[in-house]
Amino acid sequence: MTTGIPGWVPVEHRWFGLDRRQMKPAVFVLVVALLLIYGWPALNAIVPWDNPTRAGDVLNLGDGATAVPPVGWQLEDGTLVSDRTGVSPTSDNVKLVKAGTTIQMTGASFNGTAAQFLDQVIRSEDPEADISAAPATFTTASGLVGVVRSASGSGGDELLAAFKMSKSDPAAAPALLVEVAAVPGEFQQVSREIDTFLRSITSGVNE
């Protein structure tokens, strides 16, 4: 029996001032919520990555644009040409990881040059970033011209490369950003692979 006064909890139902009758739903919600919030990340932590790039793999960057990934890196995001899946050049994402180095490729729509695109990226992501090196021109094996900037700090090394994915009409073409981040001391060990990777980027079959 209750007293009938709203909010009044009979003494036999109290537990540290709380109404024990509502404990079950409250605990149920808390447990399920915590399972979703921390259970999936815990499971994720014990499931290993097992998607290494192999010799002959070619990344699909959309509209016929491609890149050849370094062999033995984990492909955590991105589509291979052999997957036969459609990729939009303005929204494609590629993530390659090896030890302490990550290569992230992001497609975007942008009107302007590769240098203007890189400026926009730096302005939008972190205008205060310590990107000391001056922009340098980078030309891929297929003749695609891009802009590269690098930065070094106590957190590691970073390289930013921007391309417009057309040799004939770069201003209106989709843009591609390649971000390489490495923990301290790691960049030198993978710099040759990264250079080869960047040089393998092509702008598409119709170019």
């Binding site: 979703l36 919030i37 990555w49 998607n51 955590e76 589509t79 899946t85």
Partner: peptide, 21 residues
């Protein structure tokens, strides 16, 4: 509180199991 961290982790689990594509 719930969906954002849960989805991020579960999506990565599917990526590991099914591949990025």
């Amino acid at each position: 509180w719930i969906a954002l961290p849960a989805n991020t982790a579960l999506l990565e689990i599917w990526t590991k199991l099914l591949g990025p594509s």
